[in-house]
Simulated scan of single mutants.
Amino acid sequence: MPKGVQPTAEQVNEVKTRFLQNLAAEPPAVPFHPSDLARIKDSDVWITQLLEAYKLDVEKAIIRLRQNCEWRQSFGTNDINETNVNQEYLNDGEIFVHNQDKDGMPLLIVNMSKHNKNKNQEDLIRVMVYWVERIQHETNYSKKITLFMDMTDAGLGNLDLDYIKAIIGLFETKYPNAPNYIVVHDLPFLLNAAFKIVKGFMPPEALEILKVTTKKDINEYVDKDNCLKVWGGNDDYVYKFQAK
């Protein structure tokens, strides 16, 4: 995936300077996490990615940066680890990271055949945030992520539009420049109507990188050695959680 238009050093500095000035003038009720403030002060990566995501809109980047810091503080994002997320969901193979796409970006796989509406949505999103944060730390924030929605063997009982909305919302607002592609793989015919509804609430930026694949064309985005056997590939991997 080609990157968007690169921001200038002046634009990055304007976001950084004005964010810090606003923070001093209107401090939050609960201070932002020191790690997030250090990322803003000591590096340009986060601000650069926000400016890319918002097409160099400085005002929007400043607002979103503050909103993201507020969310990360309230959600406890910096303190999420494998000991304080739902252990059942961490181990059941609905959400995991494995292999990479053709651009070398990690695959964040959501196996929808393992989902049901009885699962706690917030706990599932916390597991997803755990994996996104883990990827970002391991790659020093340098890599995007391909969200791989594996619909193989999913049926109406696995369908949960609120959950899919929450996933899309997470990437739209909290990690807006993270996705490389959003791949929806092996969508059963029964779920076509629901998928049209899903597309209706996806932002234009997400629709631009949305790819609907089958076993015939998945290798345009993920090569055979990085495809699981169930997708028609060569990898016979079975998920088992491994701590960092």
Rank of each mutant, 00 (worst) to 15 (best):
I135M: 04
R39C: 11
L207C: 13
L124Y: 06
D186R: 05
E172V: 08
Y175V: 09
P204S: 02
E10L: 12
N116D: 15
T152A: 07
N226C: 09
M151S: 08
E220R: 13
Q21I: 08
G76D: 11
N111C: 12
N68M: 04
Q100W: 08
W46N: 09
E208T: 15
E208Y: 12
P179K: 00
V238D: 10
T48D: 04
V5C: 02
A178P: 15
K224G: 08
G76P: 03
N78K: 00
L65A: 01
D160N: 03
F195M: 07
A154G: 10
Y130N: 10
L50H: 06
I95T: 14
E59S: 04
P106A: 02
V238N: 13
H98F: 02
R66Y: 07
T83R: 11
E52D: 01
D186W: 01
I95P: 01
H115M: 05
G76H: 02
V30D: 03
L90I: 10
R134N: 12
N158Y: 03
Y141A: 02
T152W: 00
F148N: 06
K60S: 00
E10Q: 14
E94C: 08
L108V: 00
I218S: 10
V212R: 07
I62W: 05
N91R: 14
N158Q: 05
Q73C: 09
F189I: 14
A25I: 09
K196E: 12
L23F: 07
W71L: 01
L190K: 07
G169R: 03
H185G: 14
I95N: 11
V129P: 15
R66L: 08
N118M: 15
E138F: 04
M149Y: 07
F189G: 06
Y237E: 11
I62K: 11
P7Q: 07
A53N: 04
K55P: 09
R66M: 06
Y221G: 13
Y175G: 05
T77Y: 13
S43G: 00
D153H: 04
E14V: 07
H115L: 09
S142Q: 04
P176R: 00
Y130I: 12
D223I: 13
K224C: 09
I95A: 10
E82F: 15
K3E: 10
E82N: 13
P2L: 00
K165I: 08
K144Y: 02
K3L: 11
I218P: 11
F171E: 06
H98Y: 06
L147I: 05
K16Q: 01
N81V: 01
E220L: 09
